[in-house]
Design a protein around this nucleic acid. Structure first.
Lengths: 310, 310
DNA sequence: TTACTTCCACAACCAAGAGTTGTTTCTGGT
DNA sequence: ACCAGAAACAACTCTTGGTTGTGGAAGTAA
């Protein structure tokens, strides 16, 4: 029992002619004849009375007609329920303060009709996030997934390189530097509490420290960004790294300084993961937006080799 | 969008395994895989999450699952609505007194579960009744249709030969004869009021009268069977012909006599018309019943040559 | 009647689809 | 490292649904 057969029967019943139904459906009269014959054979009853001036439903056809319409309506509802774009796009971000979340927010403000939800998966690492995308728990996820860990069925697009900035208190030796190079950071203590082993951002900071000979300290409990900033503000030697687009609320209150890194500029490569072939219009809209209207990446950037090339 | 595809999806969702669904549906695992893939391609979304321990519905699949079940239920209702046997069989008879109506009545009494309606079409003749059958207005009709007038799509089965009997009043010369041959009726006036030209029974009586040299008088208005019997009872010369199984209520009250015709026995050949391939169980039941348990036809019968042979 | 038109079914053909078996890949458990 | 289970992929066959061309039945007009 095929929906097209039912649609054909309904069309013939409504037009009264096989040829008219064929025109409406864009097929030949003979195809209509075959479809009707197959449907009648399947049901075991004659649905249409053929005359030399057209066709009309037989008594059984009159009984069947409303049922056929009902089936078509229910089928339409079923397709509508899962049509790509019928529900908001679910985008996963590591946390709501980092630059991808800000970019998604900008996208939403400029496209209010594009429905989306920003969620934060409690996944261990990028590979697990990729699985969540694959399973449909979320539709897309901003991660820094190593290129050789991209599972089948997942597409990646490196849409945002977030330049790193040094965050220091007013007593720090670099507090008034207009910018600083990664190599100049060697010897300074960089403290990033709360790094969880096995995550892709742990791997990012490890690769970064190895590339420039930095000492990045991940020890100590993570009491949250406020405690971190309190500590930074009072310390003359501690510093931390943040993304230039990250949204921290109170740096001004502590007189903290953001010092851009240059020559080269280390960037955190935010890669968008999504199901290959996903046709959700908000997904394509978001990708287009970030590709064109996203923040401009400076020249002379550094990123781990293991991320997918742009 | 095929019902089988939906059924496959529902089965996989319920069993959790492609192979289990394949077993349940009686197809191969690969066929299930193809059906699901085609459905997902049609809808544009992924419905099932494949793992190494089976499959479960994705978020979109969970949304789609109840819709799929709904479609299947509505399809089942639609098929049920026109399933052969789901409505009473409509059988047309010339009128409710003649022997086919009586036989159908006996069939119904011995098979109370076989639902049927006995109707009387106001059609002109057998050819029009055949059209009514073809169009589904009725499912079957007892007629005496000439073999060369059977339209395409109509099957015929000669199920009942109704022997004719002479109906006379007590004063008629043949009133006390145990039986009479058609040839002996030559010279007697046989009066059958209400014969309508163009009907197949008019043709029957014409053929009969020509075959045996009878004078069958069709003149005069038809005041109904009661008036006919009144007239017969009072006449010493008038006679009429009735089927042996016909049900006339008051012959005894008028002291009318039924004289069987023999050597040969003229029979009215009641042929059942029905749509070729009609699978209505009551139709097959009725045909079986009449073929086996119907009234026995005497030897040495006469019938018009133009009816279909048994 | 005879032609002509309309409407649908049938026949032959062709490409796409749906089924099959055999094989591969992936994953999780031992 | 190996093995077992699950689903996908590949190659093939055969059915199906589409096409074009044609034919038959019924109404219509000359």
């Amino acid at each position: 029992m095929d929906a097209e057969a039912l649609r054909t029967f309904v069309t013939v019943a409504e037009t009264g002619h096989f040829q008219a139904a064929a025109d409406e459906l864009g097929i030949s009269q003979q195809a209509v004849s075959k479809r009707i014959a197959a449907l009648e054979r399947h049901l075991g009853v004659m649905l249409l009375v053929r005359t030399s001036r057209g066709s009309r439903p037989s008594p059984d056809g009159q009984v069947f007609l409303p049922h056929a319409k009902k089936v078509l309506a229910v089928v339409e509802q079923a397709e509508q329920a899962v049509r790509p774009g019928s529900r908001p796009l679910r985008v996963d971000v590591l946390n709501r303060r980092i630059s991808p979340a800000q970019a998604v927010h900008r996208f939403y403000r400029s496209h209010p009709d594009m429905e989306l939800d920003v969620v934060t998966l409690s996944t261990e690492n990028a590979a697990q996030a990729a699985h969540a995308v694959l399973e449909g728990t979320v539709d897309a996820s901003f991660r820094a997934l190593p290129a050789d860990q991209v599972p089948a069925g997942i597409s990646v697009e490196r849409l945002m390189d977030a330049p790193l900035e040094l965050l220091v208190g007013p007593g720090h030796p670099l507090a008034d530097a207009p910018h600083v190079s990664p190599a100049e950071l060697a010897g300074h203590r960089i403290w990033i509490p709360g790094i969880m082993p096995g995550t892709e951002w742990a791997a990012f900071y490890r690769t970064l420290s190895e590339a420039f000979g930095l000492s990045i300290d991940a020890l100590g409990p993570d009491f949250g960004p406020e405690a971190l900033m309190d500590t930074l503000a009072e310390s003359a030697s501690l510093a931390t790294l943040v993304g230039s687009g990250d949204r921290y609320l109170w740096p001004q209150a502590h007189d903290l300084r953001r010092i851009p890194l240059r020559a080269p500029t280390p960037v955190y490569p935010h890669v968008l993961l999504f199901r290959s072939g996903d046709q959700h219009p908000v997904l394509t809209g978001l990708r287009d937006y970030l590709r064109t209207a996203g923040p401009r990446t400076p020249h002379d950037v550094w990123a781990p080799e293991w991320v997918e090339a742009a």
